[in-house]
Design a protein around this nucleic acid. Structure first.
Lengths: 136, 136
DNA sequence: TTCATTGCAAAAGTTTTGCACGTGC
DNA sequence: GCACGTGCAAAACTTTTGCAATGAA
């Protein structure tokens, strides 16, 4: 997705297309690594030394509020973000802390009559195949 | 569950039965409100003024590590705890922040060969029936 | 007695806030 | 031009840590 397409996407969502937001979204969209704020900041600041961490926080929050990013709160100590907004599960390895996407069928929750469900998060945790094989 | 039963349960898990742990577990077991640390502390300290918040943190962590409690990390800004350790989903209302249990079939994860899954959390969010009806 | 647990204070870490300045549209 | 977004510093918050004192087994 190039810059022009991102600008148009932002406009559709009523978001002003600032260089900060574009850089943050582009990084998330091209790097499906579920980065935390620190990681996003460290990456975008390389090419844009004037960017501040507060703004990265703001961008991530605004893009999430507009449905362009999903906050992944699988690891309690920090928020991660995902540009893949389709329904899928997240697995976190307790040892290496890496996050893996997995696919699972969606279905209806029971006993939720009258409830409005805006977001469904499926979080699994354990050991990834790599850490499990090393078994240490 | 009375105190004697809780003491036996702790012994089975290899946990020393301190008054602090007993009070914390009893509160969680009798009040299925998914309380955060602050709420647990405020309650148990009423009957035990000497209890400290650090110890409540320790107790909740130890009881979780032993499988007696499930940490519910649906709201990113604080950890909640649940004494119902059977598989079920959690719904948080974005408006009133209340948490509701719901029952759902297990999500079958695809492409997880070689992974060890220790914990499965299903978190939904939106508006509860009460807040939705008021629609304000 | 012994070693895990407790409690206090201080530290660590992420996220939020206030406000002047800058900028997209 | 105007409203919104940015950036800096400081504040707010939850959670963790270090360590001496206490207490369960």
């Amino acid at each position: 997705m190039n810059t022009r397409e991102i600008v148009m996407l932002f406009r559709q969502k009523g978001l002003k297309a600032t260089p900060q937001r574009i850089a943050v979204y582009k990084f998330l969209n091209e790097n499906r690594i579920h980065p935390d704020v620190e990681t996003v900041y460290n990456q975008v600041v390389k090419d844009n030394p004037s960017f501040s961490k507060t703004t990265v926080y703001n961008c991530l929050k605004d893009l999430s509020a507009s449905g362009l990013l999903i906050p992944v709160m699988i690891d309690n100590d920090k928020i991660r973000y995902d540009a893949d907004t389709s329904f899928h599960g997240h697995f976190i390895c307790e040892k290496c802390k890496k996050i893996f996407d997995f696919y699972c069928a969606d279905y209806e929750a029971k006993g939720m009559d009258g409830f409005v469900i805006n977001q469904k998060d499926v979080y699994y945790s354990g050991l990834c195949d790599c850490c499990n094989t090393k078994n240490n």
